[in-house]
């Protein structure tokens, strides 16, 4: 068997902050994952469809513009709607602590905020991926 963890790093919405997403994408690559990066301005529909076609194990979204309460749950619903039941969905960016419980309730497995070492993200994925 030659299994690799596959991750879609996605930028939903109009947010242009991509420094973090790109850093995370590269760190995941260096941790041995196969990483597809969507680039900016992707709709939740595009992200879910790409996740399905690529059969990724993880959808990793980055939002710093404050649109996460709207966009994160939408992506979760669409990804699950495609039958991707096992896909681990995580998020990161500038996300106020107070918003995190609602995001988790909506199906975001974990939220990573500024200052997180990328190693911690790698560990989280390795531990929780199905």
């Amino acid at each position: 068997m030659d299994k690799r963890i596959r991750v879609l790093v996605a930028k939903p919405g109009l947010d242009g902050h991509d420094r973090g997403a790109k850093v995370v994408a590269r760190a995941l690559r260096d941790a041995g994952f196969e990483v597809v990066y969507t680039g900016l301005r992707q709709t939740p529909e595009q992200i879910a469809e790409a996740a399905m076609q690529e059969d990724v194990n993880v959808v990793a979204m980055s939002i710093l513009s404050g649109a996460h309460p709207h966009l994160f749950p939408k992506v979760v619903d669409l990804v699950r709607g495609k039958g991707m039941k096992d896909c681990l969905i995580i998020g990161g960016g500038v996300i106020p602590e107070g918003d995190i419980p609602a995001l988790k309730a909506a199906g975001i497995a974990e939220v990573f905020t500024p200052g997180t070492p990328t190693g911690k993200i790698v560990e989280f994925i390795k531990t929780n991926v199905k």
């Binding site: 690799r4 590269r26 260096d30 041995g32 196969e34 990483v35 990066y37 790409a50 690529e54």
Partner: peptide, 9 residues
């Protein structure tokens, strides 16, 4: 690393 950036998509 065994990893890859799949950048065509």
């Amino acid at each position: 690393s065994g990893g890859a950036i799949l950048g065509d998509r």
